[in-house]
Design a protein around this nucleic acid. Structure first.
Lengths: 143, 143
DNA sequence: TTGTTATTGATATTCACTTTCATCACAGCC
DNA sequence: GGCTGTGATGAAAGTGAATATCAATAACAA
């Protein structure tokens, strides 16, 4: 899994005529072995502990590269920060976001997707992607 | 409809011990008689034509008040701008966003909502609100 | 009318990126 | 191994939208 994504990224780098660098390796490793919904800031701070010489801009640029290469995806939960989540081949999921503790749970629901397609067709739309987020309190936070 | 919302807002203002001002009346009027998905900037520019003395900050603060009073709701489509849409009593809708021309179409789908509730229950979540956006090309923009 | 308090609008500040640019480090070629 | 030509890096400056500040002003109650 982790190895597969490393390969996808290395291939992407090579295909684009870009270079493999120490920083990119470190950031990729940190990203792949982390929680699935990190903001740039969070990943930067996490890296800083072990690699104080890696700059914010590099983390920022590298996460963008991950997204371009297909191993990550940008997500926005409306808190003003861009987050990156792991992407697995052919997989799509939506989110349950706890407004109490910030926990994010992923889910997939085939029936919802199908209904979305119907809505799109009814309006003559050609869907590229979608975003479904349910906000509320998780089992631990609810009263 | 428009009158009802004006009343809701006036009541909210009164209840909070706030004041009724010329600017708020003007902004409320412009908001209610506008397109349903305006950004602060857009509403500000629209107002500027007739009322060049109204400041950006006032529009910003007033829109926030609208949201607090319940007649408007903030929405984010990931383009970096906060938009405000009209809210009607007990109504909820989702969006089809055309990435070609920016057109936004609203839709409601009872079945999807029901499935969302099921997902939430399955994860022990207590849903407060949700967000469903379908991005793609509208009938006019699709190839 | 007056006093109190909220509001306004110009401006400054914050925040989260995003770009710039001089320096550095890969990768290919002797 | 040493050169060399790019792309990469990191510190710092720049952006754009949102938010805060504050002196001047306008509502409203008495």
């Amino acid at each position: 899994m982790k190895r597969a994504k490393q390969k996808i990224f290395q291939d992407y780098i090579a295909r684009q005529g870009l270079k493999s660098t120490r920083q990119r390796d470190i950031i990729l490793d940190a990203f792949l072995s982390s929680d699935r919904h990190l903001s740039i800031e969070e990943l930067y701070l996490k890296l800083r502990a072990k690699h104080p010489n890696i700059g914010y801009a590099t983390v920022y640029r590298t996460l963008k590269l991950f997204a371009e290469s297909g191993i990550a995806r940008e997500i926005h939960f409306g808190d003003g920060q861009t987050r990156y989540e792991h992407v697995s081949e052919g997989e799509h999921h939506d989110h349950l976001v706890c407004t109490g503790c910030g926990t994010i749970i992923e889910f997939e629901n085939e029936s919802i997707e199908k209904l979305q397609d119907e809505v799109a067709v009814a309006h003559g739309f050609l869907i590229k992607h979608h975003k479904l987020e349910l906000y509320g309190l998780c089992a631990k936070c609810r009263p």
